[in-house]
């Protein structure tokens, strides 16, 4: 009887263990599949952006440059009215070229692939500081990531956060940090502004698409995030990303 009872308990125990292990495997496969889907989408999106960026730069930009040269030639030969007109044309073409350059840079993070995440974020911060009165402090320690896809996700998160601070927060100071606390298995990415903040989680339910996007991006790189904000108390987000993900060679 005891032997039988023991046998049944052992059977049930082993059975449940196998079921759990199978479920875990299934979940892992699902997560992997989701990640592959995400990376696939991301890759096609980024490829498309690259293509558009190249086209804008190489074709439209070049065509505009040529047009500008022609206009310059007209200017040298024609009357005063034509000179005024061509002057305006030149200004417009210059403006268009600047716009194209800006759109092209926005689509393809400048320097991310060549010089890495730290450089790309610094560039982004410089651009924001030039375009606004916001003072940004970016601090990065001990960062050695190599996974370009994951880095692109982090870059887009920072871009989204900066965009939010610019559009809604009325912030004057922003602190961005990437650290690897000792003996931790995760990189800690912190972002803090001194803006107007908001009541969390209420806005998330109403119109928190930006936060949802950030949350989804964080999940895709197996990270976790904590958000701290209240009205008139600024905004702070802490994102943890496993070191293993950032050190993973994407090939």
């Amino acid at each position: 009887m005891f032997l039988f009872a023991g046998g049944i308990i052992l059977f049930l125990n082993s059975y449940q263990k196998r079921i759990l292990s199978n479920q875990l495997k299934m979940q892992e496969m699902e997560v992997k599949h989701q990640q592959e889907l995400f990376y696939g989408n991301l890759e096609s999106m980024e490829n498309e952006r690259k293509r558009i960026s190249r086209d804008l730069h190489d074709e439209v930009g070049a065509a505009l440059s040529t047009t500008r040269l022609i206009v310059c030639q007209i200017q040298e030969k024609d009357t005063d009215d034509a000179q005024t007109l061509t002057e305006e044309c030149k200004k417009m073409i210059d403006k268009t070229m600047d716009n194209i350059r800006r759109i092209s840079n926005d689509m393809l993070p400048h320097g991310l692939e060549e010089f890495g995440l730290e450089y790309a974020i610094e560039e982004l911060c410089d651009k924001v500081m030039m375009a606004s009165d916001i003072d940004i402090d970016f601090d990065s320690e001990d960062y050695h990531g190599v996974n370009k896809k994951a880095e692109l996700v982090i870059y887009r998160i920072v871009q989204e956060l900066l965009n939010n601070s610019l559009k809604h927060a009325r912030a004057t100071e922003i602190n961005i940090g990437i650290q690897k606390p000792d003996e931790e298995e995760d990189y800690l990415i912190t972002y803090q502004d001194n803006g107007i903040g908001f009541e969390y989680p209420v806005p998330r339910k109403k119109a928190g698409l930006g936060i949802m996007n950030i949350e989804n991006r964080v999940k895709m790189i197996f990270g976790s995030m904590k958000l701290f904000t209240q009205p008139q108390q600024g905004f702070r987000i802490e994102i943890k990303v496993p070191v293993s993900i950032l050190l993973q060679n994407e090939n």
């Binding site: 009887m1 039988f4 059977f11 049930l12 082993s14 059975y15 196998r18 079921i19 199978n22």
Partner: peptide, 25 residues
């Protein structure tokens, strides 16, 4: 068979498991 196929999530809530256990005992 039950152990190999893992057909049921809660084996202790299946007829076959209890009846088979009864016969074995």
């Amino acid at each position: 068979k039950m152990f190999q196929t893992l057909e049921y999530v809660r084996i202790d809530r299946t007829s076959v498991f209890w009846i088979n256990s009864g016969f074995t005992l």
